[in-house]
Design a protein around this nucleic acid. Structure first.
Lengths: 219, 219, 219, 219
DNA sequence: CATGAATGAGATTTCATTCAT
DNA sequence: TATGAATGAAATCTCATTCAT
């Protein structure tokens, strides 16, 4: 009697590497959502860009919104991971603030996808962010660091007292965010190349100047 | 004997008033694009909200993108019209700057549609704004006003010299824009009610404080 | 007491000339139907081309199909009017046939709208033509003339006997029709400028040569 | 012992056979475009006739015009495939010409879709044909065969010399094309059943007679 | 785990026709 | 007679999602 012929399992060239497939879908999704928003992005395009089968998206992420949420979470995970590297404990308050500002500015310049995802998420009134327990638990260490620098600076008489760290953080971020995220309209309106390397450096210095002027002004 | 029957004039809801129809479509479009972006907005919903026939949208605006462009133009026309009311010629530079800041802040608070349209337009890399000769020719008077205040303030020794008015304008706008346009994610992340009336007033004062500290700091 | 004010009848610049309006609509319709067929033609475009109000089309012609039928009838009226000018009674049969051929060919060359309307009508399987009592009663005099020339030519021994005038007419027309009505595809396929003046003259001579060879061949 | 139960292969009506789906869409499209032209044909009707989902049309052919172009190409591919079967190399010129005529005539009689697609394409001034590299490269062998027969016939003294094969081909085709493609209007105008079997045979003979009279006439 | 053809619901757009003036 | 805004029905096209293999 014959042994049963083994199932003719076609061995595809494609990596049967689940984690890698997931990853490439997520990266592709971030690119597409960044470029076109939640509604403008196409599931087909994401699959094509990921070199993955469309079905896999549904397998890993449930549906388009699930994928968007995952991409949004990734975006936050990435910035938190970067923030966590910063250490200001031993630092001079002025230098610490300056570095925090430049870190934030640099992150915005180097991560346009973060700005774009934020814009998209706000268009949707943070509907997805609110759903994400994961993001909500991912506290930014920046507020704590800022708080520490402000306290020490105030104690040393260098900074004005009673500065609200959240208010200040929003200012630091806002000074950079608006410039970068709205660079397309601003460039058109003002006829300036806001993207130019020199312009970016200048903006970073300007932000630091503005914020430190505020902190160092005696009330 | 019967009273004469009144002429059976069917009072339709229909306006038969082209300018009004156009206007109501445009208003409805602004609401929808503001709430859902270019791709998320639905032509059907816009027509329904306008109380107009869908066909009219195509009659007046060509297609969905034409309508979006018209709504974007309207948005810019409106802010320019508000800006033009401001008069600082005779004003003390510090007071002038303060009013300019509060005007900008108030406009953002009262016109969320402006922020949203700006965000949407930037997601599309200013593709529509660039097409619009009308907007490009609609220069903001703010830069000129700011320039004048800065010159006078520097001459009087009140302000630091050589401040770039465009850079400064971007800072004034950015300090307000980020707070308002990203209030949904920020509220979620920081667990604060950024929308509260007190919070809004406080933010306005903070912005003025930050900007004036910068301008008044002696280099 | 005041005399009643006369009704404010706005006197438009536009000619209140019914016949002329009708005529211009009909001409515009012929152009549009010729260029795009029944389904491809647009009522709006016809009205615009006619410089008339769209409503007038419905007033004069009932609906789009009514207008198409009217244009089709016009087309037939025009060719019949041209045909009726021909007189062969006294003519030498060979010369008569030659002239009839050249007349037909010239008409096709000079009236592409006739060819196109014919093509369109055949696509619709003569649905409209069959409805038109007017066209059906508008007999072409050509068959009669042809018949007379054939009889006389046969009697004189110049032409072969028993030629079916309808069959022959279809041949004369077909030799010209196909060349002209299919000139776009034929030019593309054969890479020749069938529209060139010389080519048109040559074709006319060829058709006469073909037909006369047939008629004059002794069986 | 039991026979193994066959796998429960649900035999759906669905084909899940891409090539077959494509094919059936194409066939349905040809029928619809033939009957109603490019503008008159309905994508819905084509899908229904093909037993396919409308979406598939867009998947395989891009849009309605893409489908039309594909159908047009198919039509040309089919006639070229038929033409290629003809072999006249060894044939007596008169018999060869006669067969070529009858082939052409028969093809027109049996393939009304070819005539109709040609008519539609010419209404559109060969806009699609010109786009189609595929068709332009699909040279008809008929001109070559005709050329060969004419040369041999002239050498043998049977045919007149210097006959332009393109001119002659257009005549052969035109004598058949007009009769068939315009049979609806012609039948109505002349009150004859041009479609009747006898009429068709008679027409074929007439065409051969006309063409051979021309070729055999001594100049 | 992976594929990609297929689907249904719904989006945008078009168009002949009617209505209020 | 004339206007042109307005309409409803239907057309084309899109897209997230599912299904057979």
């Amino acid at each position: 009697m014959d042994a049963p012929t083994p199932p003719d399992r076609k061995r595809t060239a494609v990596t049967r590497d689940p984690e890698r497939t997931r990853r490439s879908i997520l990266d592709a999704a971030t690119v597409e959502f960044t470029a076109k928003g939640l509604n403008g992005a196409r599931v087909d395009d994401i699959a094509a860009r990921a070199g993955a089968n469309k079905r896999m998206i549904y397998h890993y992420f449930g549906d388009k919104e699930g994928l968007y949420l995952a991409a949004l979470e990734e975006t936050y995970v990435a910035i938190r991971a970067a923030e966590i590297q910063l250490k200001f404990t031993e630092r001079d308050p002025v230098e610490g603030i300056r570095e925090l500002i430049h870190f934030t500015w640099r992150y915005f310049v180097e991560h346009p996808e973060f700005l774009s995802m934020l814009g998209t998420e706000n268009l949707h009134r943070a509907r997805f962010l609110r759903q994400s327990k994961r993001i909500r638990e991912l506290h930014s260490p920046l507020i704590g660091m800022l708080s520490d620098l402000l306290t020490r600076g105030a104690a040393a008489g260098t900074f004005r007292p009673n500065v609200d760290p959240v208010q200040l953080y929003i200012s630091i971020a806002g000074l950079g965010f608006f410039y970068m995220s709205n660079r397309h309209t601003l460039s058109t309106i003002f006829g300036r190349e806001l993207d130019a390397t020199d312009a970016l450096t200048e903006r970073g210095d300007h932000i630091a100047d503005v914020i430190l002027s505020y902190l160092q002004r005696k009330p």
